[in-house]
């Protein structure tokens, strides 16, 4: 079985490539475009990133401004609502729309950082395990077995219990949860590549170990890692929100979406909007990321393509 085309990983990383004719970017886009859901998801993600970047200009109010004349105002289309607070206000009179807009900063950047953290850790550990073999390999893999045996959210809760609640610690905790997946993938891909002729060739030519690991072998392990990273990105956003919801992630008054839901819990039967909109934001974001992940998988890893 031939590995995935070697030009594609660069295409994924190189999103700003120029308009040169059939460059890798063009080729990538041509295949990606076939999946309409993936295009929609990507569009929504771009919109979200812009929203996060320009939150100061887009949001009608500061995220933590409390309006004492407007506790639990319903959204604009309901009786009692006004355009001043399009999606209503929460129990302390803060504009929900503004908080959701600012919250996009947290969810996106944290999800992204989590994935970068566990991807970097996973790649390094996986490469080391794959290259060294023997007892180091066994030890690492057994350790990963242990981490996988613990349900993700429980492991994250335990790590947060050790480190204390908070945005950064929760991020670290979730990065640990995803680590084993990247380690296993990297190791499996490394083992598959190590027996190839080009690796032997490079070795014979005198390439050092770091060069063999990161320059020769790693690029060819990337496609499954990119796909897994996108799919984990969505679950990381979910887990982060879940930790926030349980009171172990971002702490109030941070406008993180999960934390907003936790604040809103006691009002659910009186004011549906305080619960509905932050959750909707989580759902749409996760959905968009999953759509993009499906599209990337179809392009980068045709072997995995289902249907």
């Amino acid at each position: 079985m031939a590995g995935p085309p070697e030009t594609l990983p660069e295409a994924a990383a190189d999103i700003t490539a120029g308009p040169e004719p059939p460059g890798p970017m063009r080729e990538f886009w041509h295949h990606y475009r076939q999946n309409r859901g993936a295009v929609v998801g990507l569009g929504f993600l771009v919109f979200l990133v812009l929203l996060a970047l320009f939150a100061d200009f887009v949001a009608p109010h500061p995220p933590d401004a409390q309006y004492r004349d407007a506790f639990l105002t319903p959204p604009v289309w309901q009786e009692g609502g006004s355009w001043r607070f399009p999606l209503g206000t929460d129990a302390t009179g803060r504009d929900i729309l503004s908080r959701i807009v600012f919250g996009s900063r947290y969810s996106l950047s944290i999800g992204f950082l989590v994935i970068v953290l566990s991807l970097l850790g996973g790649i390094t550990i996986g490469l080391v395990a794959g290259f060294s073999g023997g007892w180091i390999d066994s030890l690492v893999m057994r350790l990963m077995d242990v981490l996988i045996a613990i349900p993700g959210l429980l492991l994250a809760l335990v790590v947060v219990a050790i480190m204390g609640p908070g945005l950064f610690n929760a991020m670290f905790a979730i990065a640990i949860v995803y680590l084993p997946h990247f380690v296993r993938l990297t190791r499996a891909a490394t083992l598959a590549e190590l027996s190839r002729d080009y690796v032997t060739g490079s070795r014979v030519a005198g390439a050092g170990l770091p060069r063999l690991m990161f320059v020769t072998v790693l690029p060819n392990c990337m496609p499954p890692l990119i796909v897994q990273a996108t799919l984990s990105f969505s679950t990381a956003v979910l887990d982060m929100a879940a930790l926030g919801f349980l009171g172990m992630g971002a702490q109030p008054p941070t406008p993180e979406w999960g934390t907003m839901l936790a604040d809103a819990r006691e009002f659910i039967l009186r004011a549906w909007w305080v619960v509905t909109f932050p959750g909707m934001a989580i759902l749409l974001t996760v959905l968009a990321i999953n759509l993009v992940g499906d599209g990337l998988r179809d392009v980068l890893d045709p072997k995995l393509k289902r249907s």
Binding site: L238, A242, I268, L269, W272, T276, G279, L283, L291, D294
Partner: peptide
């Protein structure tokens, strides 16, 4: 199913409570 797979279940639970209990 993709929506279900992307669902923040703690929010989903709250929505169901609003609808069916509230």
């Amino acid at each position: 199913t993709l929506t279900g797979y992307s669902m923040p279940i703690f929010w989903w639970g709250l929505l169901l409570i609003i609808l069916f209990s509230g």
